[in-house]
């Protein structure tokens, strides 16, 4: 019985690891393919979050409530908190440095409202 349970846990952990790696590689492809800095941030902030969650969930399933599993949970919480903030800071810094939006951008209601 214990052996079967460990087998199921192994399968679950491998599946979530694969999902995480799949989304992380999608994030990298998005970073290369999308046109400008703002669109690239869409790929890295969102997809990076779920990709990292997949890898960390795999660690949690394998390790359970051991020190390594608790650390993985903590890392997941901090990624959830910091990933959007870093994306927000990069976007704002890029806009203030005068990085133009790509061709095909249909509206910009932020133009001229920049704080000095």
């Amino acid at each position: 019985m214990a052996g079967e349970l460990a087998f199921v846990a192994d399968i679950l952990s491998i599946v979530s690891l694969l999902i995480g790696i799949f989304f992380l590689s999608l994030g990298m492809i998005g970073l290369l393919r999308l046109p400008d800095v703002y669109n690239r941030l869409h790929a890295t902030t969102k997809v990076g979050t779920l990709g990292a969650f997949g890898v960390l969930l795999s660690i949690i399933i394998q390790e359970g409530a051991s020190p390594m599993g608790i650390k993985a949970l903590t890392v997941a919480l901090f990624i959830l908190l910091t990933s959007p903030i870093s994306g927000h800071m990069i976007a704002r810094a890029a806009y203030r440095m005068g990085v133009k939006c790509c061709e095909g951008t249909c509206m910009d209601e932020y133009a001229g409202k920049r704080r000095k």
Binding site: L34, C101, G104, T105, C106, D108, E109
Partner: peptide, 22 residues
């Protein structure tokens, strides 16, 4: 959100109309 971005990234021709909204 991940499924939306995955669809955009994996489509053969990237056809997006981005913009900044208040």
């Amino acid at each position: 959100a991940n499924i939306v971005v995955a669809k955009i990234v994996l489509s053969p021709k990237i056809d997006i109309k981005p913009g900044i909204i208040a």
